[in-house]
Amino acid sequence: MIDAKRRILLKGSLAAGSVGVAVAAGLLTPRLVLADWNAAAFESKDVSAALKGLLGSDAMETNDAVVVKAPDIAENGAVVPVTVETTLSDISYIAIIASGNATPLVASFALGAAAMPFVSTRIKMGKTADVVAVVKQGDKLFSNAKNVKVTIGGCGG
């Protein structure tokens, strides 16, 4: 049992380390090859700069029609399942932000004409924080958040 706890602790601290050190991200990530990858947005360290870089604005409105599904407690911050869904129509973009991460913008999705406003993936989280989903409708941004408690080293505590 002690050994099992120790494993979890090790895993947990490793995960936290990998994201936590993300402060250095902007400096260390090789400047990249892909023209359409938005380096400025993905490497920015605060949410509003990331959103401005990605979607052109950070003026967003909280809207309960945007649903963020994520666990209340994530025992392993390296794998946090997140689903974003909305009943709003004409959504062109969905962005997922882990507000506690050093580089908060995790993923953005450009939706084609046939796509429904639904995406599901798994993200890394450095610490307990809000997972924020931002959707773009026309030129308006709507968002909603879900707090996820990341337990590092605890047995589900």
């Binding site: 994201v19 689903t83 991460n101 993923a107 999705f109 084609g112 046939a114 639904f118 995406v119 798994r122």
Partner: peptide
């Protein structure tokens, strides 16, 4: 889907190892 782009995702290193992605479309 066929020749139509349904979804373009841009990711950072913040997406988990061995990424999972799910999406839906109509038609």
């Amino acid at each position: 889907w066929k020749d139509q782009v349904v979804l373009t995702a841009a990711w950072s290193g913040g997406v988990s190892k061995n990424p999972y992605l799910s999406f839906k479309f109509i038609g």
